[in-house]
Amino acid sequence: MFARRLLYWISMAAGLVLAIVPLPGWLDPFRPDLALLAMIYFVLTSPRIAGLGYAWLSGLFLDVLRGMVLGQHALGFLVVGYLTHKLQLRMRMFPIVQQAVIVMLLLGLYHFLMFWIDGLTGHSFTGWVRWLPVLSGALLWPLVVALGDSLTRRSS
């Protein structure tokens, strides 16, 4: 249990670090939301450890890290975490491709929320480029699952 908790926090920190690592210019818009994907994974596999509080807090850290309006990513993470909690019993049964589709929908919702809040707070950016992480995140989902499974098997 403790190992799981530790693993959760470490992967969250890793996801947050990867959210600000400089990428070459052309790759930058594709940057997947790894912290969010890690959160979804842990909510699916260990919902009793990775609760909404964890999700919210990691979103809040992302806000500070990126200098956004405080609470913006926190709300996004919270909504995605809540929906994943609601869907988790079903989602676990799905084959990986179907899971990836659901994850894409969740990411789409998340980015729509971000887009909406950006607009409300006067930072709107309307280019289509901002939707690319939805695609890259969904494509990365199988990889996240594989990595997470191998890590949790070792730690438990």
Binding site: G53, G59, V69, L70, G71, Q72, A74, L75, L78
Partner: peptide
């Protein structure tokens, strides 16, 4: 938590 985030924003 959602209310808290909105309040923060």
């Amino acid at each position: 938590l959602a209310a808290l985030s909105v309040g923060l924003m």
